[in-house]
Design a protein around this nucleic acid. Structure first.
Lengths: 108, 108
DNA sequence: ACCATTAATCGTGAAATTACGATAAGCGAC
DNA sequence: GTCGCTTATCGTAATTTCACGATTAATGGT
């Protein structure tokens, strides 16, 4: 990053842009999109279910799940040795709102 | 990629997932989100305008523009030594449709 | 023809992402 | 307690991304 402090004058929403970019980044891999899709359909599932579904190693799937969890798209609750994952619908809604805002942004 | 050919049985939309992930990836950087925002507000602009706006070198901005162009979000028409960039609104709409589909996906 | 302006591309280095296997950690069942 | 199952984390390698400066290419003006 080079400094040039007229940075974004009149644009104002650096923070929002970063937030939105972070969300998009989390969804920027096919495996993670599949996981979201799957959770939308199945409601809740275990890591192992996704390992069955995708042609990826367990450790890789776990990494993708962590990525989605860090971004807030999914929640995981530990149940004994298992972890049960489900969508955080509010995050998905937030994402949709930001997409809409992006599309209608001239005035905002 | 490991092969395990029950891959996505019943999920069907590998291609869609890849497409959507590619779109998200293109929007997965704050600078590129800012560019989209800016173009939404300004309608058309030159590469140099964005260089003014963002704390990034000209070559870096050019790279981000290429990324957005490759993903289909913006178009650039050469006008002499300049290149005039504008949004491809249809792509944005397509993106929004896919986001909505993601949100309503159980049946699709 | 030459110069200034604008943008794309090249080459490069640093950092992040993606994938894997191996290992550790947690808990239930026996 | 030990074994088996499930998942997270570690270590690592290959690839991709991101940023930069330098160079090249294209065009308009003088």
């Amino acid at each position: 990053m080079k400094s040039k402090n007229k940075f974004l004058a009149g644009m104002a929403h650096t923070h929002d842009a970063e937030l939105f970019a972070a969300m998009c980044k989390a969804l920027g891999h096919p495996a993670r999109v599949m996981i979201i899709h799957y959770l939308k359909k199945i409601d809740r599932c275990l890591c192992g279910d996704i390992v069955e579904l995708l042609p990826l190693a367990q450790s890789t799937v776990s990494q993708h799940l962590k990525c989605l969890k860090d971004a807030g798209f999914i929640k995981g609750e530990v149940e004994g040795p298992k972890t049960c994952y489900c969508l955080d619908e509010s995050m998905l809604e937030k994402f949709i709102l930001m997409v809409d805002a992006l599309n209608k942004s001239p005035q905002i």
